[in-house]
C-alpha cells in the first residue's frame, strides 16, 4: 500500500499533489508561486512573510470557491482522483486492527473487494470494500476496483459470518462498476450481485454502507443494501457512469459532462432525493488533500451510526431496512401503497 498520500497536509499548499485535475490548474499555479517565494525567502534571506500570507489566503479562498462550485462532472473527477484515499488507506487511518479474510471458497480471492475483521473505535465489525490499488502493480492485482463475481461472493460469505457472530457490517463502496469481462459473465456476476442484494436485505445484523469514491451501478449496490447509506461529499453514485451514459444516449463519449449533470449523481442531489441518509463531509479541497481528516470524518460517522443501530432490535431494523428500499421510486398512481408524485 502506498503511504505517500497519507502525509498530513492542511489547506495551506504543500507539494503533495502529484496529480492536478484540469479545473485545479489555477490552484496549482498559485501553489507554485507560493513555493517559489518560500524558496526565495530561504535562499536570499528576504522577508516575504506578508506576501506569503496574502498568497496563502488567496489560495485558501480560491480552493474554497472552487470546491463550493464543483460541477457534477468535476465531482466525478475528484471522486476518481489518483490520490484519493482508498479502502486500505481508510483501514490504516481508522482501524486499530484489521484481520483480512481471503477468498469466496468457490473460485478465487478477488482483490478488488477486500474483507476482514476490524476494530473501529469501540466496535468490532466486519469491514468490506472495494480497493482500486495505488501503483500499477497493485492496480492490476485489484483489477482497478472492478470486481468479478468471486468478489461479491467473498463479501457475502463474510457478511454471513458477521451475522452468525453478531458483528455489524460496514461496507465502503468505490468502484467504476463490476468487471465487464468474459470470466465475469461466465461465472455469473449478475447472479452474484442479485443474491447479495437479496441476502443483505434480510441479513440479521446491522449494515452501514458509505460510497467513498465511485458508486458505479450494480457493482456498487451489490454491497450497498444497508440500514444506513451515506456518501462522502465528493463521491458519485449512479446507475451508469457518465461516459457510459453519454455513449448510449449521446452516441459518443464527448458528452460525459452533460450526462454527469443529467444523472444527478452527486451526494447533494441524492441526499435531496432521499436516496442516501447522510453526506460525510470532506476536508476543504477534497479527501485527496487531507486523507487524515477525511478518515476522521468517516470514522466519526461510522462510530455514531453503529452505536445508533446497535440499540435497535434486529426485527425492527430489518423491517425498516426493507421499507427504506421499498419506498424508493417516483411515479404517479391513483391507488396507493406509497404514492409519490414530484
Amino acid at each position: 500500500m502506498s503511504t505517500t498520500t497519507l502525509e498530513k497536509s492542511s489547506s495551506a499548499p504543500r507539494p503533495v499533489l502529484k496529480h492536478t485535475l484540469s479545473f485545479e490548474q489555477p490552484l496549482a499555479k498559485l501553489e507554485q508561486q507560493i513555493l517559489e517565494l518560500e524558496a526565495m525567502q530561504a535562499q536570499k534571506q528576504i522577508d516575504y512573510t506578508s506576501e506569503l500570507r496574502q498568497l496563502r489566503s488567496n489560495y485558501t479562498a480560491l480552493l474554497k470557491k472552487t470546491y463550493e462550485n464543483l460541477s457534477p462532472w468535476e465531482t466525478v473527477q475528484v471522486a476518481r482522483h489518483p490520490q484519493r484515499p482508498q479502502f486500505r488507506d481508510y483501514v490504516e487511518l481508522m482501524c486499530r486492527e484489521f484481520r483480512e479474510l481471503h477468498g469466496d471458497r468457490r473460485f478465487a480471492d478477488d482483490k478488488a473487494i477486500v474483507c476482514g475483521l476490524a476494530r473501529l473505535g469501540v466496535h468490532k465489525i466486519m469491514l468490506i470494500g472495494h480497493h482500486k490499488g495505488r501503483d500499477t502493480k497493485e492496480k492490476i492485482a485489484c483489477n482497478f476496483g472492478c470486481a468479478h463475481p468471486e468478489g461479491y461472493r467473498k463479501a457475502l460469505r463474510c457478511m454471513k459470518l458477521a451475522e452468525k457472530f453478531g458483528l455489524p457490517v460496514v461496507t465502503l463502496v468505490d468502484t467504476a462498476g463490476a468487471y465487464p469481462g468474459l470470466g465475469s459473465e461466465e461465472r455469473g456476476v449478475a447472479e452474484a450481485i442479485a443474491v447479495n442484494m437479496m441476502e443483505m436485505s434480510r441479513l440479521r445484523t446491522p449494515i452501514v454502507s458509505v460510497i467513498t469514491g465511485e458508486g458505479g451501478s450494480g457493482g456498487a449496490i451489490g454491497i450497498a443494501v444497508a440500514d444506513r447509506v451515506a456518501m462522502m461529499e465528493y463521491a458519485w453514485y449512479s446507475v451508469i457512469s457518465p461516459e457510459g451514459c453519454s455513449g448510449i444516449l449521446w452516441k459518443g463519449s464527448d458528452n460525459a459532462a452533460d450526462a454527469a449533470a443529467a444523472l444527478k449523481l452527486t451526494s447533494k442531489d441524492l441526499k435531496q432525493k432521499g436516496i442516501i441518509d447522510q453526506i460525510v463531509p470532506e476536508p476543504l479541497g477534497g479527501a485527496h488533500r487531507d486523507p487524515h481528516t477525511a478518515a476522521h470524518h468517516l470514522e466519526q460517522y461510522l462510530s455514531k451510526t453503529l452505536k445508533d443501530l446497535k440499540r435497535c432490535k434486529i426485527d425492527n431494523l430489518l423491517e425498516r431496512r426493507y421499507e427504506k428500499f421499498r419506498e424508493q421510486g417516483v411515479y404517479a398512481s391513483k391507488t396507493s401503497r406509497m404514492t409519490k408524485v414530484g
Partner: peptide
Amino acid sequence: STLSLMQM
C-alpha cells in the same frame, strides 16, 4: 438514474 438502481 439512481432511482432505477434502487429498483434492483
